[in-house]
Each structure stands twice: as C-alpha cells, then as structure tokens.
C-alpha cells in the first residue's frame, strides 16, 4: 500500500505514452497489492479490500475492554517508535495505548532535544533510527511527504500519523469505522466534509477513503479554504465529489457531517475575516444540522474549537460521535499495527 505512493511515476510521463492518455489523471497507477505493504502512508491508492481489512481487524478490539491475554501477546517484544516532529497529544497517545495493548514496547523520540534541531538532515536522522531497528515508526511532520521520504529510505515499517496537508490515514480509517459501526455500512451513505479543506490532511484522507468505498462526498466551506481540483481527487469514484458554496446545501439530507478544525492563525492570513463571522456563516449549529437526514451523525477529528467551527450544543449533543471516534481510533491503530507487523494473510 505504500508503493504506489512512492514509486517514481516516470512511466506515467514517459514518451512512449501518448500525452493524450490521461497523463494528468492519477488513475493509471499500478494496482494495489493484495498483501499489506510495508507502510501505511496514505489512503490514496488503497483498495476497498485493503480498507475493509483494517476495519474488520479493528472490530475485534471493540469495545475497548481489558485486553485479552491473546491480544496482549500479539506484538509482544516488538518496538514502536513515536517520531512526532509536530506537536500532538491525542494521536501520539492513541498510538501508544494501541501499541501497549498489543504488548509492544513504546519509545518516544524527543525531537526538541534531538540533533534535528542542530541541522541534521532527514537522511541522517532516518539512517540513525534505522540502525536502532525499531519494528515500526509512527511519524508526524508539518511537511507533506516527509513520512514517504523516510519510509523510502528505510526497511522499517512506517505509519503516517499526519504530514502537512497531505494525509492522515488512521484518522480516515477511524472515521470510517465510526460511520460503519453506526450505520452498519459505508456504501450508499452521503457525507458532508465542511471547513478548511485546503489545509486539511484529514479531509484528503477521508475523501479518498469514502469515495473509494462508494460514499457520496460533498465538500463545503468558504471558497478561500477549498482545495483546487478536489472534484478530481478520486478517479472512478462511484459518486462525483461535489463542492458547494453554501454549507446548508452541503448538509442537506446527508447521513453524516464531518467538521474540520479551523486553525486560528488562518484568520491572520486573510482566509476569513473573524472567527465570529466564520461561525456565523460556516459553523455547525443545531439549526443547520436539522437540514441533514433525521438520525444524521456529527464527526470531528478534534481538538474542537467550540463556537468556531462547531456549536457546543452540537458537539455535546446526541448526534455527536466525537468520543466514539476517540475510542475507535485506538482500535484502528491496533489493527494497523497488527496488519503491518503481523500479517496473517
């Protein structure tokens, strides 16, 4: 599942391919392998079979009771290294709990005190880590493509825990698990993804996943925060990905609403005037939520900005699945660790 992310795409552009043959579309990629790959760097390129394998594997760890003896020995003796170049408490903790429930040793690579701050190159860093032979590295970085770079230069398994605005695959998997557990299926659902799509790795991974699984995806939010080409993001999607100007239109009759976090510093870059105005026109209020299908649910990757992208009455309301997402996140990370490190296929 990593190779299509990493292999140089020279074949796509080589002169023997006629320029007319969809050189621009991301669709002429090698077929995803049936066996799990070395890494999980993104959702793009995963097949529904691979996605379902992660989801099915996670189900067996839910609900999160005391792990059984069998679970606690699944990956006993293996080492997981947390390599978080960007601050994160939730995701890092979730991976750590997941690993420990599977019996793994967990080591946190402390970036602040490492030589990275002394000008060491990424290449040097990965060679150093590689030499210590952890079994799996969880990496988060503010720059898109860093996990791919590291994974490409190492024999170790890599899991992307979020890179810039690129991908956050375990978030999309846990969101899908949350929806699937609630609705009993994914195909045929409709989901609105609202807010800062431009900077959101969560949005990208979710769009790749949902569209691949036959979910109708609608994207909404201010035009200043929409990403160009988002409609063409997933070739051969069963439903076209639609972008709406008004979030009311995006929400109308959907089964689920995914809110994206607004980073407060965006306000200073002229993406929108004030947080108050953002909430007024793009925040998810109960009134807006009523436009969705009865029984619709609300997801948010957290941490939430109350009264910015989401009203407290919604975040704390019965439609909110935010805490389910957190629990499912542990199960998904267990599933990903197990699938990559102990493939029983």
């Amino acid at each position: 599942m990593t190779n299509q992310q990493l292999s140089p795409q020279s074949s796509v552009l080589s002169p023997e391919n006629s320029p007319q043959s969809s050189v621009l579309s991301p669709e002429n990629k090698p077929q995803p392998p049936v066996l799990p790959g070395k890494d999980l760097l993104g959702i793009r390129g995963l097949s529904p079979i691979e996605i379902n394998r992660f989801l099915d594997c996670a189900e067996k760890y839910l609900p999160l009771g005391t792990p059984s003896e069998e679970t606690r020995t699944t990956l006993a003796g293996r080492t997981m290294l947390n390599l978080f170049f960007e601050a994160s408490t939730r995701t890092r903790t979730s991976f750590e709990i997941a690993a420990k429930r599977l019996g793994m040793q967990v080591v946190n690579f402390s970036i602040g005190k490492s030589s990275l701050t002394k000008g060491e190159t990424l290449r040097d860093t990965i060679e150093t880590i590689d030499a210590m032979r952890p079994d799996v590295v969880i990496v988060r970085h503010a720059t898109a493509g860093v996990p791919a770079y590291l994974a490409n230069h190492s024999q170790i398994h890599f899991i992307n825990a979020g890179d810039g605005s690129h991908e956050h695959p375990t978030q999309a998997l846990l969101d899908a698990l949350t929806l699937r557990r609630h609705f009993g299926k994914l195909a045929g659902l409709s989901v609105a993804i609202l807010g800062d799509v431009l900077h959101s790795r969560v949005a990208r991974s979710n769009i790749h996943l949902l569209a691949a699984m036959g979910v109708e995806v609608r994207v909404g939010g201010p035009s200043t925060l929409q990403a160009p080409g988002i409609e063409q993001l997933v070739p051969n999607a069963e439903f076209p990905i639609t972008v709406t100007r008004s979030i009311d239109e995006a929400i109308a009759n959907v089964d689920a609403v995914m809110m994206l976090r607004i980073q407060r510093e965006r306000q200073s870059s002229a993406f929108f005037p004030t947080l108050g105005e953002y909430f007024r026109f793009y925040g998810l209020t109960r009134k807006r939520l009523e436009l969705a299908k009865p029984g619709a649910v609300v997801l948010h990757p957290g941490p939430i900005n109350r009264e910015v992208e989401i009203a407290s009455e919604v975040a704390d309301g019965p439609e909110s699945r935010i805490l389910d997402q957190v629990a499912n996140g542990v199960a998904i990370r267990m599933a990903v660790l197990e699938t990559l490190l102990n493939p029983s296929f």
Partner: peptide, 13 residues
C-alpha cells in the same frame, strides 16, 4: 503548480 496535484500531495500551490 496550484491544482489537482498540489491538492493530492498536500503541498502549497
């Protein structure tokens, strides 16, 4: 370039 590929890769276009 700002477009489909900057969106796919999550890089500033």
């Amino acid at each position: 370039n700002e477009g489909l590929y900057s969106t796919l890769l999550g890089l500033r276009g």
